[in-house]
Simulated assay, not measured.
Amino acid sequence: MAEKNRGISPDLLIHPGETISDLLEARNIAQKELAQRAGVSEAFLSDVIHGKKDISKGLAMGLEYALGLPRSFWLNLQANYDAELLSLQEEDSIQEEEKAVLTSIHEVIDYLKKRSVISDKLTQEQMIIGLRRLFQVSRLTGLRTLAPSGAFRMSDKAAINQDVLGAWLCLCKIQGSGLQVDTSFDPDRADELVSAIKRIMLTNRGDLQKVLKELFAKYGIYFSIVRNFRGAPVHGYIARNEDGTYQMVLTLRGAFADIFWFSLFHELGHIINGDISKPGSFIDTDCIKDEKKEAAADDFASRSLIDPASYERFLDQGIFSFSAIKEYAQTQSVPLYVVIGRLQKEKVIPWTWYHRYKTRYKWAES
């Protein structure tokens, strides 16, 4: 983020009227004569020269004839002056409440500094203005209104900070804007995609994030990982684009691999089930929750990972030794930790059983 020099007074800005004054002197033309040639009153021209009024479209056209300089020159001169003046007035528009937002989203700011997205040498005012531009909001207080524009899986326990949640959503959209997908999503290829994902699950590759991104791109989905922050206990985000493609984001909250994969299939379930029926997005939080859609997405995730009928038979056998679980995982073409995690979650076995066989992920953010 570029830094701007501050401290210049609006009084030191050069109003376009001063250029007219310079030309009058250089060409030895009286102000009254120029007004007559340009087709405006002498009083109006005098106000423009003294910076009391702006160059209008009519005056710009008149000056083109009178001074031989194109109207675009005069209009651009005025536009540049207006932009510089507005830039100087930006700091005056900062509200005390916006300064409080900086404290609220301090973890997000620290993250952006580490990634060199913003400088760590900005003043408080420069930081606010820079974040307005980055997040594309006219006021930082507007972040808290953005949360409803996504499809989320929220933690059941952590508190929600609307400022942080809005900033997180902005980061998702910023990251999504740099991704490329050549085809729209086709639900008829869902089984094909699920099988491909499960093959990747078994590879235990170090470049898993890159491989998943490339795979989803072939099926019309922008896939990425965005870091989570305290106050935004989000597992995932989905949005549908005008061209029929989707963006899917997962966070780093699911350190355990079984949680990560379930979250991935859950979000994919929302897409396949048509929960976002038109361009836009839908919300899935503790506060605003469509339980039918959530249950359907959970069911899709469960069925995609483990066949329901075979799982019931496995439970009925009642044998949960390590060798039995490992053998069953192989029949489902899933890693061992997926079955262990499900048995633990459903309290079929204690959390302490086979804990050392549960894989943890630490994602490298691209």
Rank of each mutant, 00 (worst) to 15 (best):
E365F: 14
L67P: 13
F152C: 07
E267V: 00
R6E: 00
D22V: 09
Q332K: 07
Q124C: 02
R205V: 03
G62P: 01
Q124L: 03
Q162L: 12
G244V: 08
D316K: 12
Q247G: 01
K210L: 07
Q136G: 00
T141M: 01
L315H: 02
I319Y: 12
G231M: 05
L169F: 12
K358Q: 09
G236N: 04
S323N: 13
A364N: 14
I271Q: 00
A43T: 08
A217N: 05
G269P: 00
I29C: 08
A151D: 04
R139C: 01
A295W: 07
F229Q: 07
E312W: 06
P233Y: 09
E312R: 10
K362A: 05
N5C: 03
G280D: 05
D47Y: 14
A324G: 06
D307A: 13
I109V: 15
I49F: 02
D182W: 07
Q162W: 13
P279F: 02
L169Y: 09
I49H: 00
D298R: 03
Y354A: 02
L69P: 03
R205K: 12
L268S: 00
M1T: 06
D163Q: 06
L305R: 04
D298G: 01
L102R: 06
K293H: 05
I325M: 06
R356A: 13
N28K: 15
I55M: 15
N241G: 01
F73I: 14
D11N: 02
F216T: 08
S281Q: 11
W168L: 10
A66Q: 12
F282Y: 14
G220C: 07
W353Y: 01
F322R: 14
Y354N: 01
Q332E: 09
F322C: 14
D307I: 03
C287S: 09
D243L: 02
S195Y: 10
S21K: 11
